[in-house]
Structure formats: structure tokens, C-alpha cells
């Protein structure tokens, strides 16, 4: 589903030097998989995720999603491709002046759906994340966990092939974290949506990922398989992350 080929991304540091956020990284993520990107702060995991939908444009390399090289698309075609890639954020990034239903409707309005189709799809998504009774509330009236459910429903609404989740549980308490992870897992299993999830917690990887890439200094150190709660890790870094969890 997702192939990153020899991706490099550098950022200009305030002192004028360059910071290699991602160096010469290749990664393949299969359709229907829940794939983790794990590493310590500054390892380049969020940048790698944002390269998948080209929120960050790579300096070199190809980003192939569903057989399409996104780096080769013009602005309009890229916008259409992005409608197939839902995104969930650590800080939710909901629109404060839109209701829950209005936030979920947003990507559908953008994609040009009819009002009737939007209404029925929004109701479906609210049901999936269990917020039917909050449709008319504004984000300010919701708890953190509820906000993230709206974020997930919004990402899911246009029936994307992939959902990119950037530390979706890092702003939440442990109990809420588990319910959000269950929600993502449920969506993956019921609808076959590929999920790529960035996290610094091995417990997130254990609880929902099939595989995970361990990142350090912009490079993939190891791709680990997760069987049940067992993580088969060889690298010292992966082991230290396991122990930290």
C-alpha cells in the first residue's frame, strides 16, 4: 500500500546548519496492516509520517501510495490523493467553531459530496466512534478522548485507504489511550483500513501493531514483528524501548 523509497529530508537549523530528519530511508507497508513508527524524541518518526501524505516534501526519493508516486503529482492531483489518506493528530486539530458533526463533514464537503450523502456518512461515522449523542456539541465541550474520537471519525469519513496517526494518544490518560487504540484497531479490522501510527510508547505497538519500524537519527534501525503482545526485537535500541515500556 505504501512504499517509501530512499527518502531524504533535511531541515535548516536556526544556526544555519542542516538537520537530517530522515536519511535514505526505505519502508514498505502492506494493505490492511497496522504499522508502528517508534523511536525516541527527534528520531524522525513524525517527519516520516508526514512524508507519506507529503505534508513534508522529501528532498529526494519517492513516496508511492496505492501505486501512485505522490511526489510526481501536481497540486490538484495531490489534493485528490490526500482525500484517500486520513490523518489523526496528537493535538486533535479540530475546528473549534464547527460542531462534532460539522468537523466530520468537513473532508466530505471538500471532496464535493452531496448534503444527503454527507448527513448519512456523518451519522455512520459518529456511530462507529460511539459519539452519536454528541453530534451537535462543539469541541470545547468534549473531553480529550472524545475529541480524538471525533478526529478519528473525521479521518475515516471519506472512506480512506490509509489512516496516518501522529501520536494519537500522547495527550491522553492511560485509560483513554486504551479506548482510542481499541477504536483504531476496530476500524482496521472492520474496514481493512491500513493504519500507520507514530508513537514513543512500546505499549501502543504491543497493543495494536502488526509490525513496527524502530527509528533512530532519521534511519530505520529495525522492523520488528509483533505477535500478540510479543515483540521480536534484535537491535539494542528496540530492546531499550521494550524495557522502557
Amino acid at each position: 500500500m505504501i512504499h517509501l523509497q530512499n527518502i531524504c529530508k533535511r531541515f535548516r537549523r536556526p544556526d544555519g546548519g542542516w538537520f537530517d530528519a530522515v536519511c535514505d530511508t526505505s519502508l514498505s507497508i502492506a494493505a490492511g496492516e497496522v504499522f508502528g513508527l517508534i523511536g525516541f524524541s527527534g528520531a524522525g518518526k513524525s517527519t516520516l509520517l508526514r512524508l507519506i501524505n507529503l505534508l513534508e516534501r522529501p528532498d529526494s526519493g519517492a513516496v508511492i501510495v496505492a501505486g501512485q508516486d505522490l511526489t510526481a503529482l501536481d497540486a490538484k492531483a495531490l489534493r485528490r490523493a490526500r482525500q484517500q489518506l486520513g490523518m489523526v493528530f496528537q493535538q486533535f486539530n479540530l475546528m473549534a467553531n464547527r460542531t462534532v458533526a460539522g468537523n466530520i463533514a468537513f473532508p466530505l464537503e471538500i471532496a464535493g459530496w452531496s448534503a444527503a450523502d454527507i448527513a448519512s456518512r456523518v451519522a455512520e461515522c459518529l456511530e462507529i466512534v460511539g459519539l452519536t449523542d454528541r453530534a451537535g456539541h462543539y469541541p470545547a465541550q468534549l473531553s480529550g478522548g472524545q475529541k480524538q474520537r471525533v478526529g478519528i471519525a473525521r479521518a475515516l469519513a471519506p472512506r480512506p485507504k490509509v489512516i496516518l496517526a501522529d501520536e494519537p494518544t500522547s495527550a491522553l490518560d492511560p485509560k483513554t489511550t486504551q479506548s482510542i487504540l481499541d477504536c483504531l484497531k476496530d476500524i482496521n479490522q472492520r474496514f481493512g483500513v491500513t493504519v500507520v501510527i507514530v508513537t514513543h510508547e512500546m505499549h501502543v505497538v504491543r497493543s495494536i501493531c502488526h509490525r513496527a519500524a524502530v527509528l533512530d537519527a532519521g534511519r530505520v534501525v529495525e522492523v520488528v514483528e509483533v505477535n500478540g503482545a510479543e515483540v521480536d526485537a534484535r537491535s539494542a535500541l528496540a530492546r531499550s524501548l521494550l524495557e522502557a515500556a
Partner: peptide
Amino acid sequence: RGVVEAAEAMGASPLQIIVKVLLNE
């Protein structure tokens, strides 16, 4: 900034971002 970024990630055009996100928020 994240709210605008979310709209970009969803494939909103610049005009949609201005009208539906910036002015409304």
C-alpha cells in the same frame, strides 16, 4: 497552525482553507 495543517492533509484547496477554515475559525 495544526488546524490549517489538518485541512491541508484532508486535501482542501487554498480557497477552501481560507473560507471554510481561516475565516470561520
